[in-house]
Simulated scan of single mutants.
Amino acid sequence: MYAAFTRAADALFDLADALLTDPLAQRLVELALSPAFRRRWPRLYEALEDGRMDQAALRQTFVDAMPTPPGGKRLLLGLDTSSLFRPEAQTFRDRTYVYQANTPTGRRRPARG
């Protein structure tokens, strides 16, 4: 992943570490104070303003790290999605969509009225 960052690589990598390891951070200053962000807080802004990445190389890094399902099985990924319509979004022909409600099993929403 680090190799895909072409400018401000150290700061971008630390920012990625902070985002992935500090689930309670909700503001930039909290990310800058994360133990994973080893630089001073102005470097956080440098990462966001000046940082550059090779998107193709980063995408390939994620593809290389993607788990391979056992033979004859499908890879299942959990996604947080929105209902935004994206007519230009590219998809694979064999990709499927399975709706899963976000309500706990056995619990019903209270009736309105």
Rank of each mutant, 00 (worst) to 15 (best):
M1G: 10
Y2S: 10
F5C: 05
F5H: 10
T6H: 08
R7F: 14
A9N: 06
A9P: 00
D10S: 14
F13E: 00
L15G: 04
L15R: 10
A16L: 08
D17K: 11
D17R: 10
A18L: 01
A18T: 03
A18S: 03
L19V: 14
L19D: 02
T21L: 03
D22S: 13
L24D: 07
L24M: 09
A25D: 11
Q26P: 04
Q26N: 13
Q26A: 13
R27S: 09
V29I: 15
E30R: 11
E30K: 02
L33C: 06
L33R: 06
S34M: 09
S34Y: 13
F37A: 08
R38D: 06
R39M: 13
R40L: 03
R40D: 13
R40Y: 07
W41F: 15
P42K: 04
L44F: 11
E46V: 01
E46P: 02
A47V: 00
L48Q: 02
E49R: 15
D50P: 13
L58Y: 02
L58C: 06
Q60E: 02
D64A: 06
D64I: 01
A65N: 05
M66I: 07
P67S: 06
P67H: 04
P67C: 05
T68M: 10
P69V: 02
G71K: 00
K73P: 00
L75D: 03
G78F: 07
G78T: 05
L79Y: 00
D80P: 00
D80H: 09
S82W: 01
S83Q: 10
S83K: 12
S83T: 13
L84Y: 13
F85D: 06
P87H: 09
P87A: 00
E88L: 11
E88H: 12
Q90D: 00
T91I: 03
T91F: 00
R93W: 14
D94R: 15
T96S: 15
T96P: 06
T96I: 14
T96N: 14
Y97K: 02
Y97E: 04
V98R: 15
V98Y: 14
G106T: 10
R108K: 15
R108S: 13
R109Y: 15
A111G: 04
